[in-house]
């Protein structure tokens, strides 16, 4: 684990990979909840957790470097279930990348246990890990100018659901009616870092 200072009031804690980052994130949230860590923002990402708005970054960095973090498993929670029609325009293309028939994509994808590794790109957009490494797919070289809200896509090791229509380069395998983001709802985001997720196949429209 490396603790990198970021300006005067933030620290970037770097770990080996996604699982370590999730464990670190859970532990840092626990410390903040119990009052032993003061930070306005705790932002997990691919293999880092950013602490921003830290009053005493030097002290916090020293403490983090001195005591190795316990390998706390993230708290067990019921997964959020997201119904998906596996009818995306890139379904056949993803099947080709995976070397399976197109109808296998839904089975493989919905069998995986996902967790929100981090959020970014847009409010409520989660980067979900859980697919085995061999199913990683590259982004489109040229992003689509408009991806509809509710599109379920793959990029690299991640699965994501577009909270609203936006440009995007992810490979689209399906569609959901789940509302990923509604700022009038509490909480506004259906998915937040650490949330376990399962995708549940539903029948395509008109079948």
């Amino acid at each position: 684990m490396r603790v990198l200072p970021v300006g005067d009031r933030a620290l970037l804690v770097e770990v080996a990979g996604a699982q370590e980052a999730q464990a670190l994130h859970a532990e840092l949230l626990r410390r903040r909840a119990e009052g032993s860590l003061s930070a306005r923002e705790v932002v997990p990402a691919a293999r880092t957790v950013l602490l921003d708005g830290v009053d005493d970054p030097v002290g916090v960095a020293a403490r983090l470097s001195a005591e190795p973090l316990p390998a706390v498993p993230p708290p067990v929670r019921e997964p959020v279930r997201i119904p998906v029609r596996y009818d995306g325009p890139d379904l056949a293309d993803v099947a080709a990348h995976w070397g399976v028939p197109p109808e296998e994509v839904a089975r493989i994808h919905s069998a995986a246990e996902f967790r929100v590794a981090f959020c970014g790109f847009a409010p409520g957009f989660g980067y979900l890990t859980g697919l085995p490494d061999r199913y990683a797919v590259p982004r489109h070289a040229t992003p689509r100018t408009a991806v509809p809200a509710g599109s379920v896509g793959l990029a690299g090791p991640y699965t994501g659901v577009y909270p609203r229509s936006s440009p995007g380069g992810w490979r689209l395998i399906g569609t959901t009616d789940a509302v990923l983001w509604d700022h009038a709802r509490v909480p506004a985001a259906l998915l937040s870092p650490g949330t376990p997720v399962r995708f549940v196949p539903s029948l395509p429209e008109g079948s």
Binding site: A45, T48, G120
Partner: peptide, 10 residues
């Protein structure tokens, strides 16, 4: 670089 958190003034 894998995605990481960004601060104001970065």
């Amino acid at each position: 670089l894998p995605s990481e958190g960004m601060v104001l003034g970065a």
